[in-house]
């Protein structure tokens, strides 16, 4: 006995009920359950769909789909970090490195202007935090909208749009300390370090909040062979 389209739909629903949020992970599990259910039916044709499904699910052990989800998340986080790294590297090779290094020196000289240097640093930080708040809110909204429209939530997409935002929460927790960095600016080597830190921060936020979300379609197509035809 073969599974019908309705059964497949029910299996997707079943995985969602068991905390598998993302479509790419659901798809693999649905195919697995479906194969197993068909085999269970071959041996025991009197079982109902629900009974066969539960028998198959039990084989995943007491933690259910949790192990699968966790490992997949780890794998995708690693992938995401690799993507960030590949973009970041470009800023340290010619020709972009010229812009990176000159930004560090521009900041360094501006931060060193007597009396006004630290105000420049404060305004840069305020501007930066405002940008992050607005941009993160926008990205999270955009992602929600996409999930509603396509009714599919892809793990990598989720990471691209939400992880970046949550990463910056760490910075928000440290706002006070970051502002206090200005007190160290009486020493040249600290000023240089703060300039490097500021440029890196700006680069990472630009990459994670602007560049990668804009390229998300391309990245998702490369990651998921099924992306194109699942969304049509």
């Amino acid at each position: 006995m073969k599974l019908t389209d309705q059964h497949i739909e029910q299996l997707y629903k079943f995985t969602r009920q068991h905390f598998v949020e993302h479509y790419d992970v659901q798809t693999e599990l649905v195919d697995h359950l479906a194969n197993d259910i068909e085999q269970i039916w071959e041996k025991n044709p009197t079982l109902t769909f629900e009974q066969a499904r539960d028998t198959s699910f039990k084989k995943f052990g007491v933690f259910g789909f949790m192990n699968v989800v966790e490992e997949k998340q780890k794998q995708m986080n690693k992938k995401y970090r690799k993507i960030i790294w590949s973009y970041l590297k470009q800023w340290f090779t010619l020709p972009k490195i010229i812009l990176t290094v000159s930004s560090v020196f521009i900041f360094y000289f501006l931060f060193q202007i007597p009396h006004y240097g630290k105000y420049f640093f404060y305004s840069l930080e305020v501007f930066f935090f405002l940008f992050i708040i607005i941009r993160c809110q926008f990205l999270i909204k955009q992602q929600k909208q996409r999930v509603i429209e396509t009714s599919k939530n892809w793990l990598l997409e989720d990471i691209i749009f939400k992880m970046a935002s949550s990463n910056f929460i760490v910075f928000f927790c440290n706002v006070y300390n970051i502002f206090r960095l200005a007190e160290l600016m009486h020493r040249k080597e600290f000023t240089l370090l703060i300039s490097v830190f500021s440029v890196l921060l700006i680069l990472v936020s630009y990459i994670t909040l602007e560049l990668i979300p804009k390229k998300s379609e391309e990245l998702l197509e490369a990651q998921y062979p099924e992306y194109k035809f699942a969304n049509n």
Binding site: E28, F60, N67, E71
Partner: peptide, 15 residues
């Protein structure tokens, strides 16, 4: 091979 071990192993190898 249990299902709870197979897929994590596959995903790790893929990564």
């Amino acid at each position: 091979i249990t299902e709870g071990a197979l897929y994590p192993a596959l995903h790790k190898l893929e990564a």
